[in-house]
């Protein structure tokens, strides 16, 4: 399956992907409408590496083959769809955040409302249609491909 991969050699640590992710999942029609509201959203991709570090890389859900988050979900909210994408059903999620604890990549996090978890679904759960972080990465460090 096609997954999002990050090549840390080319990741600049610019954090654009985080804002593009926020925008993609915000439901807003224009990015600038995030103005003053960036604390209302939490990006599903996170750039590791402090400013000033030599190495940065953006991390988001790996859609693991044997996803431990799916196995650990007590409410059956996390599942793998036919394509292999790990999805979360907000309506089923009880907010126990076991998945947050077990994810080895730190790629699941509580949603801003604190009532459910959220994670990357490769922008299939918003109107973007293709991963927005990949589309806007200025240095092709984030790629969406079959490996």
């Amino acid at each position: 399956m096609k997954r999002i991969y990050v090549n840390e050699e080319w990741c600049l640590g610019c954090h654009l992907c985080e804002y593009e992710c926020m925008f993609a999942n915000s439901g807003l029609d224009e990015m600038f409408k995030l103005k003053g509201r960036t604390n209302e959203f939490i990006p599903r991709i996170k750039v590791e590496g402090e400013d000033g570090n030599d190495i940065h890389f953006a991390v988001n859900c790996r859609h693991c083959t044997n996803a431990i988050c799916v196995k650990s979900c007590i409410a059956g909210a996390l599942s793998k769809d036919g394509e292999g994408v790990v999805r979360i059903d907000r309506d089923k999620c009880v907010g126990c955040f076991t998945c947050v604890l077990v994810c080895p990549f730190g790629a699941i996090m509580p949603a801003p409302d604190g009532k459910a978890a959220q994670k990357c679904a490769l922008c299939t759960d918003n109107i973007m249609g293709e991963p927005n972080c990949v589309k806007h990465c200025p240095n092709n460090a984030i790629v969406f491909e079959e490996r």
Binding site: L12, L16, Y19, F32, K35, T38, D51
Partner: peptide
């Protein structure tokens, strides 16, 4: 100022 969302990409770049 109406468009700037304070993402600090300009600062980092």
């Amino acid at each position: 100022a109406d468009l700037c969302i304070g993402c600090r990409v300009c600062e980092r770049q």
